[in-house]
């Protein structure tokens, strides 16, 4: 019991004193996962919209593949990205392994199928005739796509939040491609794993509290937007 109590006390001291190392780790996590989410939004939204709005042979298979990708195990992604970025690997010359960029790449790979899958689902859930109604209103193709995205914005936002929540809390890929280098690629999750291993529960708890706060903030924002958009 003492361990928990002592850990909690020290953790809050660390947070209250705005410990430089803790803040640095939190900021890096936010930056890396935020960028990864942004990239996955760009790729997932555009490809997902394209897939949802067009019909082609093999579409069902592709959608199934994307949906499978929504639950991609981070360690598998970590392994795959590691191989690609390995010194002798296909992209080894870029010398990206054990850099924050490598983590961003891995997390983008994890989040993209989530955003893409949600986009396809959200677009296909819109009323079938909505596209015709928008075109009949005099929209160009580009205007139509934009209006459809606007109509699906709530589920899309949920998808983005799910993507962000997934990557900021994953540890496998970050540790494999980032290497948990202090002050360089150490993020909240990898630091928590390490501090726990060392028995530094106070530090681990402090990091976990921040992680939980991030997750809460994300969900709070999402809930807030949904409630504002659909008042009872």
């Amino acid at each position: 019991m003492d361990v928990i109590l002592e850990g909690l006390t020290k953790a809050f001291q660390l947070l209250a004193s705005l410990d430089r190392e803790v803040l640095g780790i939190a900021w890096l996590s936010l930056k890396v996962s935020g960028l990864a989410t942004l990239f996955s939004l760009v790729i997932g939204l555009s490809v997902g919209t394209l897939v949802a709005l067009s019909s082609f042979p093999g579409k069902k298979i592709l959608v199934s593949v994307v949906n499978t990708g929504m639950g991609l195990p981070p360690v598998v992604v970590g392994l795959f990205v590691s191989i690609m970025l390995w010194r002798n690997g296909p992209l080894g010359y870029l010398e990206l392994l054990y850099t924050p960029t490598a983590i961003i790449i891995a997390q983008t790979v994890i989040a993209t199928p989530i955003v893409m899958g949600v986009t396809i689902g959200a677009m296909q859930n819109l009323p079938a005739n909505l596209r015709l109604q928008i075109l009949a209103l005099g929209a160009t193709r580009a205007q139509m796509v934009w209006m459809l995205i606007k109509e699906a914005r709530l589920p899309l936002m949920a998808g983005v939040m799910a993507g962000f929540g997934g990557v900021i809390s994953e540890v496998g890929a970050s540790i494999m491609v980032g290497g948990n280098v202090r002050g360089y690629t150490r993020v909240l999750t990898t630091a928590t794993v390490m501090e726990t291993g060392r028995g530094n529960f106070d530090m681990a708890i402090a990091l976990s509290v921040i992680l939980l706060l991030f997750c809460f903030a994300v969900n709070y924002i999402l809930t807030y937007i949904q409630q504002r958009e659909r008042p009872r």
């Binding site: 005739n129 075109l135 009949a136 209103l137 005099g138 606007k150 914005r153």
Partner: peptide, 28 residues
């Protein structure tokens, strides 16, 4: 299509205010 308007069977309104809905064709 910008000279002919069409009202479909379902109202198919956009998820925004009544004003924005009526304005949508003009904005386009």
């Amino acid at each position: 299509r910008r000279r002919i308007a069409m009202v479909l069977q379902e109202p198919l309104l956009f998820d925004s205010t009544v004003f924005e809905n009526v304005a949508s064709g003009l904005k386009l």
